[in-house]
């Protein structure tokens, strides 16, 4: 367990606004760079990609951790393999306007997924469905709910909580909760 965390069997919810409701008919997941959309998938196109079952521990900055959570999703490697980019950072963007930033190396090499299944069921809206990022080695605010795409960036740029004083990177093992930790 990372320092300062406690185990919960609940699945608490933290978000800054109402839960968005997305229509799967118009849902897309896009990879953008500058003003270009490099690649965009519809919901059926995402579901047609090879999916993985992932069992991981997750750690929320508000100190709960949940062990052995079971997800289903597409590796971000699979998505990024379809674009050509030398970007160093990504900014995930979401329905509701939420964003969060990460180095690209933290969402590649089997470390991040676009998750649409939880515990054998479709991911509930409350927990980020239809699809959220899953980046379990960072605090869970990086696992952006209701995610709609990744913006590729050459330089790191703070996302939503990062602008409000939370840590730019958010490694739970180094307890990087707030800016400067």
């Amino acid at each position: 367990m990372p320092p300062g965390q406690y185990v919960t069997s609940d699945f608490p919810v933290l978000s800054a606004g109402p839960t968005p409701t997305a229509s799967l008919d118009s849902w897309t997941f896009s990879i953008r760079q500058g003003s270009d959309t490099l690649k965009s998938w519809t919901w059926p196109e995402i579901k047609a990609l090879p999916a993985e079952d992932v069992t991981v521990d997750i750690h929320c900055v508000t100190r709960w951790s949940k062990l052995d959570t079971q997800w289903q999703g597409v590796s971000v490697d699979t998505l990024l393999a379809q674009v050509d980019s030398g970007a160093e950072f990504v900014l995930a963007f979401c329905d509701g306007g939420y964003t969060t930033n990460m180095p690209i190396e933290d969402v590649t090499d089997g470390r991040a997924w676009l998750a649409f299944g939880y515990d054998g069921e479709p991911l509930e809206a409350e927990h980020g469905g239809p699809a959220r990022l899953l980046v379990p080695h960072l605090y869970f605010w990086k696992s952006a709910k209701w995610v709609r795409g990744l913006e590729l960036l050459d330089e790191d740029e703070p996302g939503f909580w990062e602008t409000y004083g939370y840590h730019m990177y958010g490694d739970p093992w180094r307890e990087q909760r707030y800016a400067g930790d």
Partner: peptide, 10 residues
Amino acid sequence: MAGTALRGRL
């Protein structure tokens, strides 16, 4: 409130 990102360690 964007400036809060610039503050030092709590």
